[in-house]
Every structure is written in structure tokens, then in C-alpha cells.
Simulated scan of single mutants.
Amino acid sequence: MNPAPEEITSLVGREVYSNNGIFVGEIEDVRLDLDARAVTGLALAELNQELFAGHAAGNTGVIVPYRWVRAVGDVVLVNDIIERLDTGPQEAEPEAEAEQQTP
């Protein structure tokens, strides 16, 4: 038996962790593609400052592509690619740059 689908808004407030258990941030909002009727990104706030040092300075949050999400439960798990943001552009995958939100 399939559980009842959850409302998209139920994601707001959930903590986001990498597959390796590193805290990434807290979901503040979701980015939707209304034509495709799909979630395309998670807007995170309360960021792990160590993880985003140099990438989100002066910004209130980041948007993580939804394709990075691996599991949704009490917390949201994303690919460990998020941990590689600090390796620099020469080693990071092209899609590894999280989009930045400005205040």
C-alpha cells in the first residue's frame, strides 16, 4: 500500500544533510517548474558556514538542484557532491556549483 503523498510545503523546515552525514542547511523554500509540475530546487538557509565558505559569502542562502536529492524523510539527503564545493572549479563537476540566492 502506498502512503499518501505529502504536500510540497512539508519540505520547508527540514534539515538537509549530505550522504556522508554533513549538515548542509535547512529548507526555506522550494523552486518549482509549474509547466512540468515538478520541484527543481531546494532553497536552503541556515547554511553550514564551513561548507559554503567562499561560495555564499554575503548571501542568505543557496539553491540546491533537486536532482542532487537522494532521499526525503525526516531529513533530506543530497549527493556528497555538495561537499566538493571547496575543491575549486578545476576539480568540481560542472553541475557542482550551487546557485546563489541574493537577499
Rank of each mutant, 00 (worst) to 15 (best):
G88N: 09
S18M: 04
V64K: 08
E83C: 08
E93C: 07
I63S: 01
I81H: 13
R84W: 02
A71L: 11
E91M: 13
L77D: 05
E28N: 12
L47V: 06
T40R: 10
T60V: 10
V62W: 00
G41F: 00
S18Q: 07
G54W: 01
E15M: 11
P65T: 05
A53R: 14
W68R: 13
D35R: 15
R70D: 05
G13E: 01
S18Y: 07
T102A: 05
E97M: 12
E95P: 00
E93P: 09
P94G: 03
I22V: 15
R70W: 04
I82M: 13
G41M: 03
R84Y: 11
W68F: 14
A43S: 12
G61M: 01
T87Y: 05
N19V: 14
A43N: 09
V39Q: 09
E50P: 07
N19K: 14
P65W: 02
L42T: 08
V16H: 10
N20R: 14
N79V: 04
E99A: 14
R14S: 09
E83S: 08
R67S: 12
G13T: 08
D33P: 05
E83M: 06
E93M: 11
Y17A: 10
L85Q: 15
F23C: 05
D29V: 05
L44K: 14
A53M: 04
D86M: 10
I8L: 13
L47Q: 07
L47P: 00
V76A: 13
T102P: 00
V62H: 01
G41W: 00
T9K: 14
Q101M: 14
G73N: 12
G21T: 09
L32H: 02
V24C: 02
V75R: 15
N2M: 12
E46Q: 15
I81P: 06
Y66T: 09
N59W: 02
R31E: 15
E99W: 04
V62T: 01
L85F: 04
N19L: 15
P3N: 11
V30N: 07
E26Y: 03
L77Y: 12
I63T: 13
N20G: 11
D80G: 10
R84A: 12
D80S: 14
E15P: 06
V16F: 06
D86P: 06
V16Q: 03
A36R: 15
V75F: 04
I82E: 11
P3D: 13
P3M: 11
Q90K: 12
N59C: 06
E50N: 14
G54N: 08
